[in-house]
Design a protein around this nucleic acid. Sequence first.
DNA 1: CAAATTGTTTAGCT
DNA 2: CAGCTAAACAATTT
Length: 261
Amino acid sequence: MEGPSIVIATEEFKPFLNTRTKTGPVKGQKLVRTRSWGKHFILEFEKTMLRIHFLMFGSYRIDNPRENRTPKMVLTFPKGTVYFYSCAIKEIETLENYDWSVDTMSPKWSTPKAVRTLKKLPNEMVCDVLMNQDIFAGVGNIIKNEVQFRQRLHPETKLDQLTDKQIKALVADTRAYCLLFYKWKKANVLKRNWQIMRKRKCPLCGGPVTKKHTGKLQRISHWCRRDQPLNRSLIRSPRPGKQTKHPRSRPRESPALTAAP
DNA sequence: CAAATTGTTTAGCT
DNA sequence: CAGCTAAACAATTT
């Protein structure tokens, strides 16, 4: 479960706020507030805070338990019962460790901060930084792949191959796509809007989608070799100082070149 | 239907 | 100690 889904969870818990659960490790306590930070779902009870991580396969159900599955936790509120499955539940003492400015779904998210962070990591690949929860908390493999495609970036592009403008666009679009993911998920049209994730053909050129483990994290990336070429920035917009005397790309409008005998 | 997958932590190595 | 890899965990989808 990625960040936007956790925000939706906080909303789905609103009916249970300020009421007590009759079951679970926090039996008898009132639910005071729910929060999300990246992929963390935080339930604040009167005396106890629970941090829930759904990892890859976790889920929750409200008033509709799964058959033949033992929930990890059940919370029974006056207005409904919530069942949690295959998730990691941890009691936490404080929120001090959370930096909300790196949470891609938070109102406190800071694009300039992420840009500054990326500029300090010239040797990191796009696919690795996008999944880094200290930089883009809440981004998972789906968001990673879709943002790479939207920005026409090869997953294995090293950050020092990007112009400042491209770094800025990457960060800003990651945030923008997280908000879109949220909106589309709520409207039940998320998968319909995937452009590259689990697709066989590139929606732009119709070419095959490459699927390969990429980066240090070795999670699968889905990308188009034609529309997300490696080192695109060097070809299309060389950085000052890296320009050679024999640029690879000719100016587009130059009648002399085609008119010559 | 075997394989992949919306993910992270930890142990154990070099 | 840093950096890495494999293992463990878990359940649905293709």
